[in-house]
Amino acid sequence: MARKWTFTDRRRPGRPGTRQPVKALITRMARENPTWGHRRIQGELARLGYRIAASTVWEILHAAGIDPAPRRAGPTWRQFLTAQAHAIIACDFLVVETMLLKRLYVLVFIEHGTRKVHLAGVTAHPTGAWTMQQARNLAMELGNRIAELRFLIHDRDPLFTAAFSAVFTAEGLQVITTLPRTPRMNAVCDRVIGTLRRELLDRILILDERPLALVLQEYLIHYNGHRPHQSRQQRPPDIATQPSPNVIDLNDLRSIRRKPVATGTINEYHRAA
């Protein structure tokens, strides 16, 4: 009868020095799959060609401080966001102070998968009814694409009323409200608001609602259609996949043209026609 190989057995032919790699693989499988128990991991290892006793897998997990599957914590919030990015849209308010010390509120949405930002509206007097109307406008703007989304994330601002949530639940989305004092639960939206401030709003003076809406719309044309994003391999949100452009001959800098956008605060660079 063939001898069963265990984790501590180093004499199996063709498997020299496998102790630490197999241990690392077992703990990795457990952390990446919170619902897997030691026998499920044993089975996955068998498919990879590693015959190891279930009791040995259990001992390795126990030594690593990993609880059995029924008591193990589920996926982290970061893991959830990463796995479901294509199906998540998030929203938040951006507050802008004008030259006349008037406070304006900007409602923005961002699609996690593409990083595309939507300007829902600008107002000095936000209400629950106004917020609900912006939700309806966004649903109409997304059209059939809203069917691809599954989750909406927002904080506990009272302006996000039940009627606001109902607009999205009617489209089949599940509304997730962040925990109190936990801004990292809506970190993607917070980050784009920070980008709006650093790249645009901190560099211009705003007089009123209409100028703010116009400059934000112009900036978002740049943001969604041109600005490179690290999470998208330096592609803008509106370009899903495209081959990398041919390299420009930098010996002739006249072939590159600068285009100021967003009231001249940002430059874009294009090839000359």
Score class of each variant (00 low, 15 high):
1 M>D: 12
2 A>H: 11
3 R>C: 12
7 F>D: 07
16 P>K: 14
21 P>H: 11
23 K>D: 08
24 A>L: 15
26 I>F: 04
28 R>F: 13
28 R>L: 15
32 E>P: 05
33 N>D: 06
35 T>N: 13
36 W>N: 02
42 Q>R: 01
43 G>T: 09
45 L>D: 07
46 A>Y: 05
49 G>M: 10
54 A>T: 06
55 S>H: 12
56 T>F: 03
64 A>W: 00
69 A>Y: 03
73 A>L: 04
74 G>Q: 08
81 L>A: 11
84 Q>C: 11
88 I>D: 00
90 A>W: 01
98 T>I: 13
102 K>H: 14
103 R>D: 08
108 V>Y: 00
110 I>P: 00
119 L>G: 08
121 G>P: 10
122 V>H: 04
128 G>F: 08
128 G>S: 12
135 A>G: 10
141 E>K: 11
142 L>F: 05
142 L>R: 09
143 G>C: 14
143 G>K: 12
146 I>G: 02
150 R>S: 15
153 I>P: 01
157 D>G: 13
163 A>N: 02
166 A>T: 10
168 F>I: 01
169 T>L: 10
171 E>Q: 13
177 T>F: 08
183 P>N: 08
185 M>P: 00
191 R>P: 01
195 T>W: 06
198 R>I: 02
200 L>W: 02
202 D>F: 08
203 R>L: 15
205 L>P: 00
208 D>Q: 09
210 R>S: 12
210 R>M: 10
211 P>N: 07
211 P>I: 07
214 L>H: 13
216 L>E: 01
223 Y>V: 00
225 G>C: 12
242 Q>K: 12
249 D>W: 07
250 L>A: 10
250 L>V: 14
250 L>F: 14
251 N>W: 06
254 R>L: 12
263 T>G: 03
264 G>P: 04
267 N>V: 06
272 A>Y: 12
